[in-house]
Every structure is written in structure tokens, then in C-alpha cells.
């Protein structure tokens, strides 16, 4: 104990100024994090052991009731599954498309700026707006597709009112928005790649496809990893598009995501305690998944020297 303190004192004498500088740099942000992020998390954690409808004066202690109620609720599992399907589909499909798009856009083409702008437009569009636009694009009456159905003389699918297609519609918006963002980063990464590697490869007579596989992708792996992690985290938090397009319907959990469910339970069904329990479980799951991603990353991400 005493030795530990002495050790610390010595370390402080040696590094104290450095430590103070660290604090000076990090503290302003840490204060904000403490007030507006860590405190809400702690609060949610304590609330998750209570029953509270937000209106009554004080939450009532309920022990583990909320957690028990969660895990036996089939809606909870369905919503978790939906979120997983949503996140995995959006991240993989969008990134694959974005990578291809970035490879195309990276060529010296005429009108490249126009292509680039159009490709990136979806990302800068407010999710709320994007969702609204897609509501009418998919709409069996107002949408461009319905013109097509009319010419064919068939009754087209009613995307948002079909339990099978509603989640797909929400996913489509997610992919549409993510492609632009991911291709922006891929393009930036591609343009920063060292030309000498390619020159060496060209001298070796490597074919384009093998160059892509052996040089481009490994060199791009930090970008890919970055997009995978951030994209996945963002995707698991999908909320706006669900709220606007389907409200989780048509048959409730059909197209609901985890965060939308959390919101619905807390604010529509007046169950703040249960919503807090949902939030805590969500946090633990995403931290675990992200940690897993980081662990696996050491196998295939190359940061260079």
C-alpha cells in the first residue's frame, strides 16, 4: 500500500507535468461527457430497477422485475433480431456497393464531380426527410413504381403494409444513406494510397484483380475497419426511419428496431423503468460486439508503420 503510494509519487514527479497537460486537454470534454453522457447512463441503470411512468412523483423499487420481464418477452427477441438483420444487411451491402462505387469514382472520368455529388447526396439528407421521401417512393399510389405497376396491370406490393417487406423498406433507406458516407471515406482512402506500391506491382505484372486483392484491400483495411465499426454502431441505433415509415408495424414488432422499441416502451407506453432496462441491455450488447470487432481486427487490419 505504502509502496504503491511511493511508486505513484515517484511516477508523478517524473510525469506530473505531462499528466496535467493531459488533463488540461481532455478535461473540458470529460466534463461534458460526465454531465451529459455518464450521468444519464448511471441514471438509466438505477431506473432500470424501478417501475416509473415518468409522471408519478417517484420511481418505485422493483428489483430485477424489468429484466425478467424483458427476457421472457418475445417482442424483445424479435426486436433484437430485427436490429441485427438491419445492421448486418445495411453495413455489408452498403459497404460493398460503396467500395465498388469508390473504385469507379476514383478513375479520371469526365463528370466525376457530378457523379460524386449524386452518390453522396443521400448521406447528407436528414434521415427524417429520407424516410419521408421513401414513404412516397414506395407508395402504391404516389410512388414512381406504382406507374410501373399500373402499366403492367398488376396491383403492386404495399411495402410498408406488408409484414415481410416493411423491414426491407427500412433497410433500403439505411443502405441508401450509408452508401454515400462509406464511399466518401473509401474514395478518400483510395486517393491517399501510396503510388509506389502500385508501381512495384505493375513492374511485377500483377493483374488488376490481384492488385485489388493483394494491395488495395489490405492498404484500405484501416478505412474498412473504421467504417465497419462506426457503421455497425450507427446502424444498431436506427430510429428515425422506423419512427417515420412504419412505427415498427404493420404488425408491431415486424419492422421495429431495438432503439425504436426502447422509445416506444418509454414514451408511448409510459414504462420508463422497462425502457431503462432495455437501454442497459443494449449498451452491454453493443459494447460486447464492438470489443469483438476490435479483437478480430488485429488479424486483418494493417495500420502500416
Amino acid at each position: 500500500m505504502d509502496a504503491g503510494r511511493r511508486h505513484f509519487a515517484r511516477a508523478f514527479r517524473r510525469n506530473g507535468r505531462e499528466w496535467l497537460t493531459f488533463l488540461l486537454f481532455a478535461a473540458p470534454n470529460l466534463v461534458l461527457f460526465a454531465v451529459f453522457t455518464y450521468w444519464p447512463i448511471l441514471r438509466s441503470f438505477t431506473l432500470s430497477f424501478t417501475k416509473w411512468n415518468l409522471l408519478s412523483p417517484a420511481p418505485k423499487w422493483a428489483g430485477l422485475t424489468n429484466y425478467r420481464a424483458l427476457f421472457v418477452d418475445p417482442i424483445f427477441w424479435r426486436v433484437a433480431l430485427n436490429t441485427l438483420i438491419y445492421a448486418v444487411t445495411v453495413v455489408t451491402v452498403a459497404q460493398a456497393c460503396a467500395f465498388l462505387l469508390a473504385l469507379l469514382l476514383n478513375r479520371p472520368l469526365r463528370g466525376r464531380a457530378v457523379f460524386r455529388t449524386v452518390a453522396f447526396l443521400p448521406h447528407v439528407t436528414t434521415t427524417a426527410v429520407a424516410a419521408l421521401v421513401w414513404v412516397i417512393v414506395l407508395h402504391p399510389h404516389y410512388g414512381p413504381l406504382s406507374g410501373l405497376y399500373a402499366t403492367l396491370g398488376v396491383n403492386g406490393p404495399n411495402w410498408l403494409e406488408s409484414t415481410g417487406l416493411a423491414l426491407l423498406a427500412v433497410i433500403a433507406v439505411g443502405i441508401w444513406k450509408e452508401i454515400g458516407f462509406a464511399s466518401l471515406f473509401f474514395l478518400a482512402g483510395l486517393q491517399g494510397l501510396p503510388a509506389d506500391c502500385y508501381e512495384a506491382a505493375a513492374l511485377d505484372g500483377a493483374r488488376p484483380l490481384s492488385r485489388l486483392w493483394h494491395i488495395t484491400i489490405p492498404l484500405m483495411s484501416p478505412v474498412i475497419f473504421f467504417l465497419l465499426v462506426t457503421g455497425f454502431i450507427a446502424a444498431t441505433k436506427a430510429f428515425d426511419s422506423v419512427a417515420i415509415m412504419t412505427e415498427g408495424g404493420p404488425v408491431y414488432p415486424a419492422s421495429s428496431t431495438y432503439v425504436y422499441h426502447l422509445y416506444k416502451v418509454g414514451f408511448r407506453d409510459f414504462q420508463a423503468g422497462l425502457a431503462s432496462a432495455l437501454a442497459c441491455v443494449f449498451f452491454i450488447i453493443t459494447v460486447a460486439i464492438t470489443a469483438l470487432q476490435f479483437r478480430m481486427a488485429s488479424r486483418w487490419v494493417h495500420y502500416g508503420e
Partner: peptide, 22 residues
């Protein structure tokens, strides 16, 4: 039977269906 349709929640589509004679 197709004698009734159920438009989606987000768009208020039942009025559109009526207004366009469908």
C-alpha cells in the same frame, strides 16, 4: 377478396385511394 384495401400508416393512403377513384 380485394373488396377492401389497407394502405400503410405513414401516408394516409386511404384518402388518396378514394380521391383518385380507386
Amino acid at each position: 377478396e380485394g373488396a377492401a384495401t389497407l394502405p400503410d400508416k405513414a401516408s394516409g393512403g386511404h384518402r388518396a385511394a378514394f380521391l383518385s377513384g380507386r
